[in-house]
């Protein structure tokens, strides 16, 4: 009898505790009650995984051009989360700049702290906001240090001559690129997309900052709790650089840097992100 009761109590306890886990009511939203949260920027290329220097197994864009990728780096900044009831929390700006490097899988998480709660939307910036782009150098450290990554010809993400960051740097090779001045005169068949432009210092210039909001309802909301690591897993599809709303061919535009055409490419960049699932 005693043994039976014990079983019964245990069973009830298990059921109750599993129930409570399933319900898991959202804690009261308190700004000081911080817990770990991350967004994962998982780079993909169309139907395939992302790999650097994939010269043995080329990707093919919608224009039928085969290409390999040699570099991918982009800034993610100004992360904000929103609950179903519309409460928002913006991560303190000083802790909200990340450089995702396609060659280094460890850089794919933007790990921050947000209040415990259930979030149905995440918002972030692809690029670096204009305020930070013009801030005192002592406020631009880590990935924002103009010295980081070497010069802008290598892994650097800063343009000294126009005082701005390169938001998105994507390089690779394709045989469709001509060897003349309209392509790559060095004969290396290289494409380079260095997209930046924070809107200008004194007069308005091109602004390629993209603020992106992802609705999490369909693929899983983020339940942020102290004892867990809630992670919003996004796919970032590099194929859409070429195949987005402003589709273009590598042969026609093998180099896009600080130019009016960069605005078209930047519009494609806003479409790279899709929510695959959330790990709570």
């Amino acid at each position: 009898m005693k043994k039976k009761l014990l079983y019964f109590v245990t069973l009830i306890t298990i059921i109750l505790s599993s129930c409570s886990k399933n319900d898991d009511p959202a804690p009261d939203f308190e700004e000081a009650n911080l817990a770990p949260f991350s967004i994962e920027f998982d780079n993909i290329v169309g139907d395939r995984t992302f790999s650097i220097n994939n010269t043995g197994s080329l990707y093919t864009n919608a224009a039928g051009e085969k290409f390999s990728i040699s570099m991918l780096q982009y800034f993610i900044s100004n992360i904000k989360v929103t609950t179903a009831s519309g409460k928002t929390y913006t991560v303190p700006q000083d802790e909200s700049y990340f450089l995702i490097n396609g060659a280094d899988r460890n850089t794919r998480f933007t790990k921050v702290q947000v209040p415990e709660g259930d979030y149905t939307k995440v918002t972030f910036t692809l690029g670096v906001d204009s305020l930070r782009s013009t801030m005192d150098l002592s406020k631009r450290t880590g990935v924002l240090d103009p010295a980081a990554g070497g010069g802008h010809d290598s892994g650097g993400m800063y343009w000294g001559w126009n005082s701005g960051y390169i938001f998105f740097k994507f390089e690779g090779n394709s045989n469709v690129i001509s060897d003349d001045v309209n392509g790559d005169p060095t004969g290396k068949k290289q494409f380079k997309y260095h997209i930046g432009g924070f809107g200008g210092y004194s007069a308005p210039t091109i602004n390629n900052i993209k603020v992106i909001t992802i609705d999490l309802n369909a693929a899983g909301i983020a339940k942020v709790r102290k004892d867990r690591q809630s992670n919003v897993h996004l796919f970032v599809d590099m194929m859409k650089v070429f195949n987005g709303p402003n589709a273009f061919s590598i042969a026609a535009h093998p180099n896009v840097m600080f130019s009016d055409y960069s605005v078209n490419v930047a519009k494609n960049l806003a479409q790279l992100f899709t929510h695959d699932h959330t790990e709570n």
Binding site: T134, P146, A147, G150, H152, Y158, G160, W161, S163, Y201
Partner: peptide
């Protein structure tokens, strides 16, 4: 133009190919 803060100006000559051709680090 292009630079509006004296503190960020030296980045250009230090990193420019025809000037000092070095990287900051």
């Amino acid at each position: 133009g292009g630079v509006y803060d004296l503190d960020t100006q030296p980045i250009i000559p230090i990193t420019t190919h025809e000037e000092m051709d070095e990287n900051l680090e």
